[in-house]
Write a protein that binds this DNA or RNA. Structure first.
Lengths: 296, 296
DNA sequence: CATCGTCTGCAACATTTGTTTTATTTGATA
DNA sequence: TATCAAATAAAACAAATGTTGCAGACGATG
């Protein structure tokens, strides 16, 4: 079927030493690996034409504590194959309590990596591409992300501002968040970023934008997010992490990809804009590459 | 995640009619379809944060005889997907334009995933742990991230503000960025986030903080970053991406891990703070889970 | 305020699960 | 053929699963 599977190899390797019944069970498992994960042991043994106890005995024969280990192994393999990617570190955790600190960090990081990798599945890529197209054809892009999503919205706006004057960040103190939409119209698009729990204000502004005729592109976390119903294009990214908090790293990655796709629509114009921005920032002495020795 | 699945569509379609608990169950099922097939209902409901009976009720709500039908359906889908995996990978030919776009997105996302995964190497984990310790023992944490790094700084502050009053975000309009440091002293720590090109202002403030005796923890991008010389602890994360721009996703991931580690130092206190924040935000009606029907 | 209907958590229920124990069969050897 | 060990089948078992009934909580309506 595919790559190296140690349990599978062990079954094959010790096949000859098995008794006839064990062989029959083993053969069935080798030939129907998915079934092992999807069906109870009793049903599996029925289909294999073998007694239930034979499955347990097979597990012990393979030096495993019990049949559940065989099932768990096949379940993990199926999970991996189904979302097609190597790094899957999530789920099924012992709780964080008995987790060493390094363990917590590592699992978080690997989980994040896996979630971002999963965004590169074809379905997501198509959504990204469609969203980028919609944003590209807009006159203006209004960017909305409140509370935790502020970081993503701000990043998108920051990068796009280097490329031109197309974006307007809906943000501000003293309850002026929505003011930017005053002059927005049907030629414009709202990029709305919101994850569960959804900020009420974000939803209200998105609805207002919809009523004003704006197109809506959403970065959100679920097919049943309230933004999905409003949006012309929605990009879904997971926000689960092995910690108390939701993660925004996948959403930020989506934002970065959108920026790249937009910049890519006209590479020469993008390069030119960036150079102009560079010159501007240079003349303002914005950046430094080393600590300046203090004047005495 | 992919093509038309009638049950999935039904869940999405009738999502709005569901009670809150049913929604929570449905949402989890939509976002973890494989798990439905691979774990027992009780475990699934545990992971979804829902009573077992809610799953049964969800099934009935969907006009199914019982939960087993939901499971059977997802099992069948998983069987199909696992089988057709090889064949399906081909397809998606489309025209070259789309291909190129998809290529760029995919390479970016997989690159980001790899960079974050690389942060889970032992060397990085030790730096993370050391940095978390240093932050934990500080009286106050001043958070500094300008320009592109604002998103990371803001995110760190936002999360930590949910946990307590330990952080102060060095940010503000009208050139007041540094004012927060007025009362900073030797018991405090500056968390400085800066990547190439380094904002001159960030470096100046970091140096000022150093002179005032603050400890410094840095999130930056290179062993030769000017922050490394100033900092007691530095965490390095790559910022390269296959696009015009630097990526901040790894830096954000680092920030999230630091938050998790800090919250983990006193889990009960963290939980308590979060609950208090929840109550506060609830009483302010900050969040909503659906679009409010407009009054007529 | 009272009342109704819905929603939700809890606990009991009968089944089913994986395992273990006990009996029976098998087949090779003397 | 008698004997004995290995292999298998059958049955018994505790633990878990999915389901159901019931009581309290909640919110809307009068």
């Amino acid at each position: 079927m595919l790559q190296d599977d140690p349990l599978r190899d062990r079954i094959i390797g010790r096949f000859d030493e098995m008794s006839p019944q064990l062989q029959q069970a083993a053969r069935y498992i080798l030939e129907h690996p998915q079934e092992v994960a999807l069906v109870s042991m009793r049903e599996l043994s029925r289909n294999a034409g073998v007694q239930p106890s034979t499955m347990t005995r097979l597990a012990k024969f393979l030096d495993l504590p019990g049949y559940d280990d065989i099932r768990a192994h096949h379940g993990e393999a199926l999970r991996l194959r189904a979302d097609g990617f190597a790094a899957r570190a999530m789920q099924h955790g012992e709780n964080e309590q008995d987790m060493a600190v390094a363990q917590l960090s590592r699992r978080m990081l690997q989980g994040l990596a896996a979630q971002i990798a999963r965004l590169s599945e074809p379905a997501s890529l198509e959504r990204l591409s469609a969203a980028a197209d919609r944003l590209a054809q807009a006159r203006r892009i209004y960017v909305l992300g409140l509370r935790s999503c502020h970081s993503v919205a701000w990043h998108f706006h920051y990068v796009m501002a280097l490329l031109g004057e197309k974006t307007i960040h809906l943000d501000g103190p003293a309850d002026t968040v929505g003011d930017g939409l005053i002059r927005a119209g049907a030629e414009d698009v709202l990029l709305a970023i919101s994850i569960n729990p959804y900020a009420r204000h974000s939803l209200e502004l998105a609805q207002l934008a919809r009523e004003k005729g704006l197109g809506i592109v959403a970065i959100t976390d679920s097919e049943v997010s309230p933004l999905v119903g409003l949006a012309d294009q929605a990009i879904l990214c997971s926000t689960e992490s092995q910690s108390f908090f939701h993660t925004l790293a996948p959403a930020l990655a989506v934002s970065e990809v959108l920026c790249a796709l937009l910049a890519n629509k006209d590479r020469t114009a993008a390069l030119e804009s960036l150079q102009r921005a560079d010159r501007h920032l240079l003349s303002l002495n914005t950046y430094a590459s080393a600590i300046q020795r203090r004047r005495i």
